[in-house]
Design a protein around this nucleic acid. Sequence first.
DNA 1: CTTGACACCCAAAACGTTTTGGAGAATTCT
DNA 2: AGAATTCTCCAAAACGTTTTGGGTGTCAAG
Lengths: 336, 336
Amino acid sequence: MANLKQLAQSLGLSITTVSRALDGYADVSASTRERVREAADKVGYRPNASARRLRRQRAELVAVTLPSDPGHIGPPHFLDILSGCAEHLAAAGLNLVIAPVPRGESELDICRRFVDGRRVDAMLLVRTKRKDERVEFLQARGIPFVTNGRTESLAPHPYIDGDGFAGFRAATLRFHAAGHRRIGHIAGPQEYYFAHDRCRGWRAAMEECGLATDLCAEGAPLEQGGYLAALELLRQPSRPTALVCTTDEMAIGALRALREVDGGNQISIVGHDDLPMGAFTSPPLSTMRMTGENLGASFASLLLRAIAGEPAAELQELHAIEFVDRDSHRRPAKAA
Amino acid sequence: MANLKQLAQSLGLSITTVSRALDGYADVSASTRERVREAADKVGYRPNASARRLRRQRAELVAVTLPSDPGHIGPPHFLDILSGCAEHLAAAGLNLVIAPVPRGESELDICRRFVDGRRVDAMLLVRTKRKDERVEFLQARGIPFVTNGRTESLAPHPYIDGDGFAGFRAATLRFHAAGHRRIGHIAGPQEYYFAHDRCRGWRAAMEECGLATDLCAEGAPLEQGGYLAALELLRQPSRPTALVCTTDEMAIGALRALREVDGGNQISIVGHDDLPMGAFTSPPLSTMRMTGENLGASFASLLLRAIAGEPAAELQELHAIEFVDRDSHRRPAKAA
DNA sequence: CTTGACACCCAAAACGTTTTGGAGAATTCT
DNA sequence: AGAATTCTCCAAAACGTTTTGGGTGTCAAG
């Protein structure tokens, strides 16, 4: 309601003293400090954020870019993560702004706008590509940032990611141990790191087992993409008996394809993300998920430490993948 | 990278002229304007957001409060709505910040912080209560805001809401027309407007049909809440043959209760929200949803118009509810 | 030649804070 | 008593814009 000048005037003090009193500096006497605080409380004084930001040369803001186009916005708990992140950032005086990418603009444009307009102190990037121009741009500008997902960037940068390679390798090996020999992979767009990483995991396991890696079909990371990719694999002369799918959404699409082609329930399947709806599919979808709780807090912590100037190499978290066994991975190895 | 002063110096012009040239004022010659624009483009000049905000007395920010506690964060497409809203706000130069409510603080505290620190030009409120202190506060302060959900506030305020009363009345009447006479309602916390509104719709239909309104149980707007409330209704001497549930999550909980108590599939059920997982429950969950596409754009438009000073009474959108018929509402009226 | 009108430009104020570099008074030390 | 130190406080600068209120020429009209 009021500003520093009015508050100072009403107290018969200088702006400086009031400001310092509120910030708890030692060079204002305890009695004055108390007097100032009481007056500030009474009129409900809050420093004007814009003025403070201008003077301090800090935006007090962090932006997260939201991919709007194809593989859309991520799993439903993504908002919970953002919310948790925002909450922890707020405790440090930072607010989180969401920056969707409008049609016709690239994510790079968004970064540029935020960074060059000094609108943010740091950025949070999701859905990294193997070669990610946003990462390169921010590294060149020297702006702190954290990504959800790794990249193939030469210079290290802070990230949080799941170990998709290990997860998909383990899932594939498990199918092999259960007797499966024709294990197919439903891949996502390989430009995305997570899709490529998971594909590599499947491929590595297959090669370790001396199996052919021909049963791989790529599609959009959506229900429809999984459906089409599964149909493609089911058309092969030697069908898969098990399917390792890059995402749950694709797995659910694959489930639909299976139902249509052979009445379903003959082919084992596993996805990734632990979507809530996976509990209700038939058969209930076995899946994987990244371990670690309160990811939002981790993102916030990494962001704050990046802003504080910690070296990137110390700000990397690779989380293990855990299985969420329901039922869809238990079909027999020898299909009809 | 650069600021106005440096840009002006390099051009041999005053700060004023450069600023006005970039803003397209007519009192700078076309040739100068062009020259300035080119130079600005070349060095990638963007006005410093904090300085502009301070001078203009606008925060260029809108905050949305995210309830973190009990009925959590809303349907999965909520983030899509926010994203759409943010995108349209961005076109008007506003960014959307998400403001989760930390433990120990009230939503009112959040509003106070944002408003009194002049951190926002407007606010977006979700999950309104019938008597909502946030609404009262913002009205008293004269800050523009839009709510998702109505309130019982005497003074009108901008909102977007679904017509829960009409929707739940129609759903109940439809059960009646199908021969049901014992139609139960699984209610949400009645302090929330949406929960109360939907409950009123059910009650109104029951009274119109001359039926008793004893089959009503309240629970938290979660799976567990619906489960417990359904169990309560199933313990009645004269059981319901149909259940109208305040949310899909509660309906899914009710489905679980039904499965446990009588093997399921005997009692009709309908929810609200059109959660994706409803398509996979057994039986597939019949539900309702608010009509209208691109809600995010609507929120943005209302916010902008509220900021522009349009009277609140013209900024209210009540959307019809439509049925999403799957299978769970088709059980016979006479249960075992 | 004077008077407006017009086109183009600029100095300075303002937005509300934080921070720098003291100033004056009181206290302690020598 | 004088010097040094500590305790309080403050004036002014700075952050980078936008906007106000002219100022200086040029040109046409009177």
